[in-house]
């Protein structure tokens, strides 16, 4: 593939590479940050990267199934954020900080 056409014409690959970049940035946040809330935000970034690739695949193959999966991903992401933030509130009540290291002492 000649370079000029790959730069001027947006192909599926452009969207997939954007999606991979978003996923890796999110993963970097998850393994790098200490704040539990920022880690949750990074997980949202990862899920959004996956959503981008679903929508791009769906568009370029002219099907609707990818959009439905995106809905499910969004619903699960919202649920995960709610539970994660409730856990963060519970941790904060006890330790007065939301460092991810506090989660080592979890008990049922």
């Amino acid at each position: 593939m000649p370079l000029t056409s790959s730069l001027t014409e947006i192909s599926l690959n452009h969207y997939l590479i954007l999606s991979a970049a978003l996923f890796c940035i999110g993963m970097f946040g998850v393994i790098m940050r200490k704040n539990a809330i920022v880690i949750l935000m990074s997980i949202e970034l990862m899920l959004n990267g996956v959503n981008v690739s679903f929508v791009a695949f769906s568009r370029y193959q002219n099907t609707m199934d990818g959009y439905v999966i995106v809905f499910f991903v969004m619903a699960i992401a919202a649920a995960e954020a709610a539970v994660g933030l409730a856990l963060a509130v519970a941790i904060f009540k006890r330790f007065r900080e939301i460092n991810i290291s506090s989660f080592e002492h979890l008990k049922g």
Binding site: A86, A90, F92, K93, R94, L106, K107
Partner: peptide, 12 residues
């Protein structure tokens, strides 16, 4: 989420 956030003493 509600029961987690309302529990006395949180997760401990």
């Amino acid at each position: 989420a509600v029961s987690l956030a309302r529990a006395k003493g949180g997760t401990h």
